[in-house]
Design a binder for these strands. Structure first.
Lengths: 156, 156
DNA sequence: TATTGTTATACTCTATAACTATA
DNA sequence: TATAGTTATAGAGTATAACAATA
């Protein structure tokens, strides 16, 4: 999300946290650009790539919308475009005929695999971390994510 | 950027990196939602908030576009809307009259301060890290960001 | 000639509200 | 009544191309 000029607190602990927040936003901006560039290399928008990467074997559209944090009405158009290009199909859920399930086609699965590999292999800065540093980062991110989910569930 | 299903390599080092990439994308999605929610609380889109947070004392529009990784033609509209609401003004650069400089107004500076504080104080999961963990995270992120910038400069 | 910012255009994402079909 | 998905609509972000003013 680019450079943010967050006011620095005087308390050293809070100041360190503020610095982490700023670094995170800077790195997030790079990740966003990286993701968009990988998607664009396959003529997909970031949104279309997100939907494709989230697809399981039989994903209800509502779950896609919830995971992506947007209104379900948006998903219709995104899925339309992916379907027109042959990357997924819709089917009715036999258990609840209101629900439509999304399935990646063979071409969709191949594309997903390719995008996944590109996302991983060209991850900015990742190759410079040692094995131990990668493990440290994994643990710290786990804590951040776990707590975020907890808060999300509590407030929802 | 939501849940990404990145194929897991068999090599344990590569697998650990892939896990970090997946965690990063998950946390990034939470940060994006956090940023949007803070911006929306002040009737700003994420893009408008990014521009406002990036504004220095006299920022050329071209620099804003470069920092945000988008075409300069987009900035015109975003800046128009922020200007209409009294958060910034344009002025001609006396040294190069093609350039227009952006200045946050008093209201813009107040809003920037408030958004910065909200971004920092409600940062998902950040409050759960110990002082030492915050320091570790800062160092790891510094490495990731430093290398990203280096690559960016090398390729540009 | 090259660059800065603007405008026009077309496409996509976005939320809201109204609608159909189903539960 | 409530829910899943669609459609219509309006507003915003996005890149491309053409343009005026300036360098």
């Amino acid at each position: 999300m680019g450079v943010c000029r967050i006011p620095k607190p005087k308390d050293p602990i809070a100041a360190a946290r503020a610095e982490v927040v700023e670094l995170l936003f800077s790195y997030v901006e790079r990740l966003r650009a990286h993701f968009e560039s990988v998607a664009a290399a396959h003529d997909l928008t970031a949104m279309q790539a997100k939907v494709l990467m989230f697809l399981g074997d039989a994903e209800p559209m509502r779950c896609v919308a919830e995971n992506l944090g947007c209104d379900p009405s948006n998903i219709t158009g995104v899925v339309d475009r992916l379907q027109d290009r042959g990357f997924l199909t819709r089917s009715e859920d036999p258990n609840d005929r209101r629900v439509k399930l999304l399935h990646a086609t063979a071409a969709g699965k191949r594309l997903r695999e390719t995008i996944g590999l590109n996302l991983f292999r060209e991850m900015p800065g990742m190759g410079e971390l040692s094995r131990a540093q990668v493990a440290d980062l994994r643990n710290l991110l786990s804590m951040l994510c776990a707590h975020s989910v907890e808060k999300q569930l509590a407030s929802g």
